[in-house]
């Protein structure tokens, strides 16, 4: 059988429209985001988890003591995204970063709009840039930006 010139190609999209029920702790986290606030949860030893968890990762105890946090923090780790993909939070080069918010002891994963890779460094200070409209989702924080 003769070889054909070129194999056919077609777009193939798989989409799962998941909904998840948040439960009492994450419900408070996302409700706060909708109001442009960030909250964490306090463990028995006084340390604060953000994003909050329902159960203490070490002891398994139920957690629920919510703590207001600032929308500023420090970058503890980062990776530069030179070519953002369509679903990613920014459509220009940005960094994915772990950000420990002021008042928290654990880092939150989010995007940092630093303009260029050379401006990124561990221990840099950042502040949340809030979205124009909020819905109760992590993208209510559009991204973080460096604080000079």
């Amino acid at each position: 059988m003769s070889q054909i010139e070129k194999a056919l190609t077609a777009p193939h999209v798989i989409e799962y429209t998941y909904k998840r029920s948040l439960g009492p702790v994450l419900s408070q986290f996302f409700t706060a985001l909708r109001e442009r606030r960030v909250v964490g949860v306090r463990r028995k030893d006084g340390t604060v988890l953000c994003p909050p968890k329902e159960y203490d990762p070490d002891t398994g105890e139920s957690l629920g003591d919510m703590v207001p946090l600032k929308d500023t923090g420090v970058v503890t780790s980062w990776a530069w995204v030179a070519k953002p993909r369509p679903q990613q939070p920014l459509q220009k080069p940005f960094a994915y970063a772990l950000i420990r918010l002021d008042g928290a002891d654990t880092p939150l994963l989010h995007a940092v709009d630093a303009g260029s890779e050379s401006r990124m460094k561990t221990s840099m200070r950042v502040r949340a840039r809030w979205a124009d409209t909020t819905t109760g989702a992590i993208r209510d924080i559009a991204c973080f930006e460096p604080v000079d």
Binding site: A7, A10, V13, L22, A137
Partner: peptide, 16 residues
């Protein structure tokens, strides 16, 4: 806020 929409979307170019 009690429910979060978390769609997963995978875009491929399928070669037959």
């Amino acid at each position: 806020v009690q429910v979060l929409q978390t769609p997963v979307r995978l875009e491929y170019v399928f070669s037959a």
